[in-house]
Simulated assay, not measured.
Amino acid sequence: MTGNGVDRDPWVMLRAATRARVGLGRAGDGLPTAENLRLAAAHAAARDAVHLPLDADAVVAALGERPSVVVHSAAADRAEYLQRPDLGRRLDEASEARLREAAPEEPADLTVVVADGLSPRAVHDHAVAVLDALAARLDDWSFSPVVVAEQARVALGDAVAAALGSRMVLVLVGERPGMSSPDSLGAYLTWAPRVGRVDSERNCVSNIRPPDGLSHDGAAEILAALMGEARRRELTGVELKDTGAALPEAAG
């Protein structure tokens, strides 16, 4: 600090306010060695998050006494999943048959799909904790078995919930890792799920990754509010907004 209280480095305040890489300095025409090493480590962490296998058995164990079903998309392995996003949106035949056998006699209000997505690490770290926090806020809701999905994209939830006959689906999925966020979980909510739904018909709560992102309780609070309005108005997507305080009334 200088005598008048102004820091010598003008980037200090900005760096303290963001996890983005700003004001890194330079060594000649390049970055300092320490920053290069940090960048390489962050890149490696992001790659590891993408390729880490989902431990479906551990997720099922963490669910405790909740009924669950493990399914697989039509992507045979991780390489095919990354190269063919369309296959990650479809169930394989055995999984679809398994779900139809597990469907409750009466349609459930909600199916929760725990999907590996592009960061199984995020699922391992956050998915069950978000589900626990959310379930505590949904006393009057009926649930189908929780579905743990391997090699899954968001839209796989539509096929899953349609097979189970559920009114709504919530997909908790590992988001694409960033250079400062290899463990970010997303939550996608769709009313009346069916194959062919598009992203504009969903609501998303993103960057669930305490302590650097949204907390588990914070995400559950937003999701519970969205879900209550979705059930009342029988819709999700661009017509259903979270203003940060109260959800808007239906137009007209």
Rank of each mutant, 00 (worst) to 15 (best):
V69I: 04
A129P: 04
G157C: 09
E101R: 15
S142Y: 12
R38A: 12
D116W: 01
R89K: 08
L110R: 04
P53I: 03
L91P: 09
G88V: 10
L91Q: 13
L91T: 08
T111H: 08
L63E: 09
V147Q: 01
H126K: 04
A74Y: 05
E105Y: 15
L54P: 06
V112P: 00
A115S: 04
V59E: 12
R66T: 11
R84Y: 08
R98D: 11
E150P: 07
A45K: 13
A152E: 06
A152D: 09
V146Y: 02
D125W: 06
P120V: 03
A163H: 05
G88T: 01
V169E: 01
R89W: 00
V123P: 04
Q151A: 07
A149K: 05
V147K: 02
Q151E: 02
R121S: 07
E80I: 08
R66D: 10
V60C: 11
R66A: 11
H124T: 05
D92V: 00
L37I: 13
A42W: 01
G117H: 07
V169N: 14
E106S: 15
R100Y: 07
A94V: 08
A79P: 04
R78H: 13
A102L: 10
D158E: 12
Q83R: 15
S73H: 03
A127V: 06
L131G: 11
A135D: 15
S142M: 14
H51W: 12
V60M: 05
D48R: 05
V71L: 05
A75Q: 08
G117N: 04
L54T: 01
G157Q: 03
M168V: 15
R89E: 11
R137C: 10
A76H: 15
A162N: 12
G64I: 03
V71R: 06
L54H: 08
